[in-house]
Computed example of a mutant assay.
Amino acid sequence: MKKLTDEEIEKKLGSLEGWSYTDEGIQTSFEFENFKEAFTLMTRIAFEAEAMDHHPNWTNVYNTLEITLSTHDAGGVTAKDFKLAKAIEDIVNAE
């Protein structure tokens, strides 16, 4: 998988709400009503990530979920990260 350029990443970020680009990858965070809601969404995202064979770096503290996506094999952000980011957006927005 080809690593995207900074310009390609910034352009693709325009189609995602609340995501930003840092040295670690593309990142976002979500705040839910409570831990149960956050964990429920994490579980749904986990199944999608497993199906895509692409796994996020994430942390969960009570009702907050922070996600960073990067393709380690490519040494940066690839189209695969944007595909998972879009799936995450769809899962969260379906709630």
Rank of each mutant, 00 (worst) to 15 (best):
residue 15 S to H: 12
residue 87 A to V: 03
residue 20 S to T: 13
residue 91 I to W: 05
residue 11 K to R: 15
residue 50 E to R: 15
residue 69 L to E: 03
residue 44 R to C: 10
residue 36 K to T: 11
residue 25 G to T: 05
residue 17 E to A: 08
residue 60 N to M: 06
residue 71 T to W: 10
residue 56 P to T: 09
residue 6 D to L: 13
residue 41 L to H: 11
residue 46 A to S: 09
residue 8 E to F: 12
residue 45 I to H: 03
residue 32 F to G: 00
residue 92 V to Y: 02
residue 83 K to P: 00
residue 7 E to Y: 13
residue 31 E to V: 13
residue 17 E to L: 08
residue 43 T to G: 04
residue 79 A to N: 01
residue 61 V to D: 07
residue 68 T to E: 14
residue 39 F to D: 09
residue 8 E to D: 08
residue 79 A to M: 00
residue 81 D to P: 00
residue 48 E to D: 05
residue 63 N to F: 12
residue 11 K to L: 14
residue 39 F to H: 09
residue 65 L to Y: 15
residue 77 V to S: 02
residue 37 E to A: 14
residue 48 E to W: 06
residue 50 E to H: 15
residue 61 V to E: 07
residue 72 H to Q: 11
residue 60 N to C: 06
residue 91 I to H: 04
residue 89 E to Q: 14
residue 73 D to I: 12
residue 7 E to A: 15
residue 61 V to A: 11
residue 95 E to G: 05
residue 64 T to W: 07
residue 7 E to K: 15
residue 12 K to S: 07
residue 19 W to L: 02
residue 72 H to C: 07
residue 82 F to K: 07
residue 51 A to P: 13
residue 90 D to F: 03
residue 48 E to F: 00
residue 36 K to P: 00
residue 71 T to P: 00
residue 29 S to Y: 15
residue 49 A to T: 15
residue 92 V to C: 02
residue 48 E to V: 07
residue 79 A to Q: 01
residue 52 M to C: 09
residue 14 G to A: 08
residue 26 I to R: 12
residue 42 M to N: 12
residue 88 I to N: 03
residue 13 L to G: 10
residue 77 V to F: 01
residue 66 E to Y: 10
residue 67 I to K: 14
residue 87 A to C: 06
residue 3 K to D: 10
residue 24 E to T: 01
residue 62 Y to E: 07
residue 19 W to V: 00
residue 51 A to Y: 14
residue 71 T to F: 05
residue 81 D to W: 03
residue 23 D to M: 04
residue 16 L to C: 08
residue 76 G to V: 07
residue 1 M to R: 03
residue 5 T to I: 05
residue 56 P to S: 11
residue 10 E to F: 10
residue 58 W to V: 08
residue 34 N to C: 00
residue 64 T to E: 14
residue 69 L to A: 11
residue 78 T to M: 01
residue 19 W to K: 01
residue 54 H to Q: 06
residue 69 L to T: 06
residue 81 D to Q: 03
residue 46 A to P: 07
residue 60 N to T: 06
residue 38 A to H: 04
residue 46 A to K: 00
residue 49 A to C: 13
residue 43 T to C: 05
residue 15 S to K: 12
residue 25 G to A: 05
residue 5 T to F: 03
residue 35 F to C: 13
residue 52 M to L: 14
residue 19 W to F: 08
residue 70 S to P: 02
residue 57 N to C: 08
residue 8 E to Y: 11
residue 92 V to G: 01
residue 78 T to L: 05
residue 79 A to R: 02
